[in-house]
Amino acid sequence: MSGAVGREPVFPTRQSLGLMKSKLKGAETGHSLLKRKSEALTKCRAEITRRIDEAKRKMGRVMQIAAFSLAEVSYAVGGDIGYQVQESAKQARFRVRAKQENVSGVFLPQFESYTQDGVNDFALTGLGKGGQQIQRCRETYARAVETLVELASLQTAFLILDEVIKVVNRRDINSELDELDREEFYRLKKVSGKKQRDTAAADAEILAARKKAEAEEAAQAASGVVAEEPKAAESEAADILGEQEDNDVIF
């Protein structure tokens, strides 16, 4: 809460005591739940971060091995096979599918790699020579890509989790601010209602004053020809008063 300033104006009755108590209990329960969720997610994120770090290191090694096996291929084939490979790639054999994992109410996607059966774009690659090396290279690279996919799903999970943690940590503050907003609005409505009532009262007063003045005027007219000046000044003064009252209502 925001200290002594934000103390709730409560009318001291037993009923409102009960109300306030249940309100407090609800707020505490909600807060502890959110806190537990936030802690669980933070723990999960730390775990994922650690695994990302590990996987990145592993990726470095795996890619190195894969690059080496490709070098073996170009040595065995005796030339560049890059162009041939690029031209013969048609259908992806290596694909991923995403499935969901639930961590404290947050759905984290996880990529799972699988190979499409019956698709082989490179049946003719290395037919002349180096077929064995190419086969080995393909296996090495397939393993490397599996590592990469694993890393990618960790990375995605991290990004989503990070976002969710931010939202959860922010949510209790936000809901409190909303509550304050509602209270403030209610207060303003009350204030404006009071102002309107006051204005109405003031108007009635002015009206009464005018009537009185008119009555006096009539009396004066009856009594004789007395100066009209003071009476005009008086009504003007009353008008100015009225205007000021109106300005006050705007806030």
């Binding site: 490709l70 890059g82 490979v85 690029q86 790639a89 259908q91 290596f94 991923v96 190419i134």
Partner: peptide, 25 residues
């Protein structure tokens, strides 16, 4: 619907990854 991998890389990296079977046209 996201099933494919994509790659932007130098010739060797692309060749290797295509050999693994990620290429799709």
């Amino acid at each position: 619907d996201r099933q494919l991998l994509a790659v932007i890389g130098d010739e060797d990296s692309v060749t290797g990854l295509l050999l693994a079977g990620i290429g799709h046209v």
